[in-house]
Design a protein around this nucleic acid. Structure first.
Lengths: 159, 159
DNA sequence: ATGGATGCAAAGCCTTTGCAAGCTT
DNA sequence: AAGCTTGCAAAGGCTTTGCATCCAT
């Protein structure tokens, strides 16, 4: 890794190593904040911008890419894994993955047809996951009009 | 339209009508700012938040949905048109559409398999469109190192 | 030594909201 | 009259950047 970065003109530092390591440990759809928290658990002296800049760096060297689900924060996803799409549950805000190998082929075909040079693609499905649906059903059965608007939970976004 | 909104408890106002009308005239992937500009061309007294809130309202009543390409602003897309994906050209920042009817079917299958209740889905391909690729090729041929970093245009985001 | 890296604080930007005043119904 | 809407300004929330200092090479 150190060597890899050196070839690109970057230096290795303890903070950078920690950020990289933490990112690859977490690995899936992390936000800057989440990564920051993780890093801080190990070294309380690391600054937010250091985490941010290194996360960007990870993207720049092609090891991660940004993904945008509808929750207002940019998330970062490893690229080393095989293509996958995301289920985003609007109720519990969880992110599930699904395989994209079939669909990827079709997308490639479409892109080719349009003379478009693909760098990356994203496939996202928004909806309600099974467990949330079950939960809602149970709740509805219990009381049909208990309190208004309980269906939309809100994602906590504290830093 | 007025009747439709009334059934949902909303009133019609001149501003609202203007925002709705403008949105449906523009129609494709508009941002709040763009819609705001358009509205302002007709009535300089309309406030930004009015446009914003009415755009949200359009989404709420199911006439539009948010789309996120990688340019940092939320865009809004009519839902009345048939399912389509987006090509996002990272060079010229343009957004092209492509048909999704084949892929939509497959996505539905995947969702069903995962017991996931789909509300909507997004398919986005990022890359370089034909005309930008041609442009870059020509430029490269003309001068291999004229000035650094001319390839990435920047989307104007002034309000 | 040197140029990249770090931390802190401060900007930037877009998105939301509080509130008083104005309009639909 | 009652309540939704509007406009303005201000607050939020996440993302970026300026800068002096520090550190890897």
């Amino acid at each position: 890794m150190r060597e890899f970065l050196k070839t690109k003109g970057y230096k290795m530092t303890p903070q950078r190593e920690l950020v990289f390591r933490s990112f690859f440990e977490l690995g899936e759809h992390v936000s800057v904040d989440e990564l920051f928290d993780r890093v801080r658990q190990i070294d309380k002296a690391v600054g937010y911008s250091t985490v941010w800049r290194n996360l960007k760096l990870i993207c720049e060297v092609g090891l991660a890419r940004e993904v945008n689900v509808g929750d207002g924060v940019t998330r970062y996803d490893r690229v080393t894994r095989k293509p996958h799409g995301h289920f985003y549950c609007v109720s519990c805000k969880s992110l599930l993955e699904f395989d994209l190998n079939e669909i990827a082929g079709r997308l490639a075909k479409v892109a080719t047809a349009e003379k478009f040079e693909t760098e990356s693609f994203k496939v996202e499905i928004e909806g309600v996951c099974k467990s949330c649906r079950d939960k809602e059903n149970r709740k509805t059965k219990r009381s049909l009009s208990e309190s208004p608007g309980v269906s939309k939970a809100k994602l906590s976004k504290k830093r």
